Amino acid sequence: MKKLLLVGAAALFLGACSEESATKDTTAASTENAEKAPDAKQELMRFYMSIPQTINAVDADLNAFEAAQMKEALPEGDDLAAMKEAAIASAKEAGTAVEGIEIPESLADHKSDIEGAFASIKESYEMKAAELTKEASFEAANAKFVEADEVFNKMLEEQGLAPSSILNEVSK
């Protein structure tokens, strides 16, 4: 009986050791895979958040114009002309900044969609710059920007992330 008990205990011990070893092997393999392929969700979020940061670095004068326009507090005469010129330069810089954003290799499957979204954003800023030479109605330009938001939101939702709006982020 004692021998049977010893054999049973040894079997349990060996079974536990082999399970622990298998768990370590699985954990090591998972860690190795995680290190090789960055988490797509995190990479997408990092990239997505870099877009408004890049634009916000150069679009302050455009935002100031739009805010003053919404409050119906635009200056007149030379001050308005100077504000419009600064906003035009800001809009052009924003379009150029978007062109300079690099798409990470991990998002290569979405490269054509991202490039299309960037083209919409750039076109939106070009439209704003053109509107600033007139009465400055930005409805069509903002609608163009929404096209880019829709592309990015589709990508976010595919990763189980909540949709967002780059337009809202850059209009602050």
Rank of each mutant, 00 (worst) to 15 (best):
K122Q: 11
A40E: 10
E115I: 05
S164N: 11
A108E: 12
A28N: 14
K84C: 05
A140N: 08
E105G: 06
L156H: 03
L14V: 09
N63P: 03
L74A: 10
T96W: 01
I88D: 00
A16D: 12
A91M: 02
K154M: 08
K144A: 10
K24S: 14
T27H: 11
Y125H: 06
E157F: 10
A97P: 01
I166V: 05
S164L: 05
Q69T: 08
M45A: 06
E139Q: 10
E150T: 15
G95I: 00
K41C: 04
S30D: 12
E158Q: 12
V170C: 02
V7E: 05
E72P: 00
V170H: 03
F152L: 05
A57D: 12
D149T: 07
K84I: 05
Y48W: 12
E150M: 13
K154L: 07
F152D: 00
A64F: 10
N56M: 04
F13T: 09
L5H: 11
A22K: 10
D149W: 11
L156F: 03
A9K: 13
I103Y: 09
R46G: 06
H110C: 07
L107K: 04
L80K: 06
A87L: 04
S164T: 04
P163V: 01
T96Q: 10
D78F: 08
N168D: 10
A148R: 01
F47E: 00
L132F: 01
D109A: 14
K2W: 12
